Computed example of a mutant assay.
Amino acid sequence: MNPKNPYPVLNELRPDTGQEQKVRCFPFNSADSASHPHTPDHFVLILFKEGNGTHTIDGTDYIVRPRQLHFLFPGQEHQWHLAPETRGKKLIITRLQFEKFSPGLPHPIARYNQQPVIDLASEVFQNIATEFSLIQKELASAPPSWEVIGLRTGLIATLASQQAERGLIDRALPNSYTNTLLLKFNDLVALHFRKQKSVAFYAMQLNVTPNYLTILCKKKFRAPAISLIQQKVLQEAKKLIRTSGMTIKEIAYELGFNEIAYFSYYFKSKTGLSPRQYRNQV
């Protein structure tokens, strides 16, 4: 430990050694936080129960406080300085396993990427802490149910999203119009993405121009509006291919593609695999 800095620092991300686990969930404290590095190929949820410090994610500093949930995504650079009393739990999910869980998330991934730190009300914190404990318990069973773990991960994301949305309203931010509009956009995409895949449709529903909606999405989510729509389509396609038992043709029609050839081209252009190759892989 640096004598000039009494807080442990996580400066480097290194791959885990040994056989990689799909999901890990474990308690941590400031004493061992620097000894548990995680690879950039992992998705990480960090639940802070007590303590304080600073967590830097992609160059942005976030103040660590009790009852917070932090989201980390593969490829993000981060380090933290934590006070000695800091403790909580980590949920670490491999990139491949998270891809299987992500269709169950309530919002596009870019939304969590844009707001990586969420302050939790006491009741919400307790509910999320319970889900962490239940995931940890499920992982200890033989064999664990990945479906149950995926559902509980989705529930954590849902609870955190609801808390974040309430926080935006409670704080009455100056850009509340923008936040409200983008929340409506997310809701509209979730409702209509199977049939409506153009930015123009959603812009018309929101009484704004397609260009303005794209500008807002880039500013808030670091992704254009069309990417968020496509991401939702792709998440649902992966979910149906993996779990539904429907034929590829049926899935294509379910998602609003009139031609299976175009659906296959669309899917492969986003994933590098044809729908059948993806089904065989998972």
Rank of each mutant, 00 (worst) to 15 (best):
E123A: 12
R276G: 13
L216N: 05
A157K: 02
T17N: 13
M1D: 09
H38S: 06
E147C: 06
N113E: 13
H36F: 14
L151Y: 01
E250Y: 02
Q19V: 11
P6H: 10
G150L: 01
V117T: 15
C25Q: 05
S33G: 02
T86L: 10
S102G: 04
F73V: 11
I248A: 05
Q126W: 01
V117N: 15
P103D: 12
A121V: 06
E50S: 13
V117K: 15
Q162G: 09
V44Y: 00
F201H: 07
N29F: 02
G88Y: 00
V199R: 00
M204C: 03
Q76E: 14
P84K: 05
E165I: 11
T56P: 05
A200M: 04
F267N: 00
T54Q: 12
D32K: 07
M1T: 10
Q68E: 11
S133P: 03
G272E: 01
R276D: 09
V44M: 05
Q205M: 13
W80R: 02
P8E: 08
P174C: 05
W146G: 00
P143K: 07
Y62F: 15
F101P: 00
F257H: 04
Y202T: 04
N11W: 09
G53R: 10
L173A: 13
Y253T: 15
F48I: 15
Y7S: 12
L45G: 01
A157P: 04
L105E: 03
A200P: 01
V117I: 15
K218V: 07
K238F: 02
F132V: 11
L181K: 13
Q196S: 07
K184V: 02
G150N: 01
L181W: 09
I169Y: 13
E123W: 06
T54E: 14
M246Q: 05
P210L: 04
P6D: 10
S33K: 03
E236C: 08
L228Y: 07
T39K: 02
N175E: 14
A83K: 15
E250C: 02
R279S: 15
Q277N: 05
R67N: 14
S30F: 03
F193L: 03
E254I: 09
F71W: 14
S122Y: 11
Y112P: 08
A172P: 03
D119W: 02
N175C: 08
W146P: 00
H38W: 05
R67D: 10
I241A: 07
F125W: 06
Q79I: 01
M204N: 08
P84M: 04
P3Y: 05
L216Y: 04
T243E: 14
S33Y: 04
I118G: 01
I63R: 15
A261T: 08
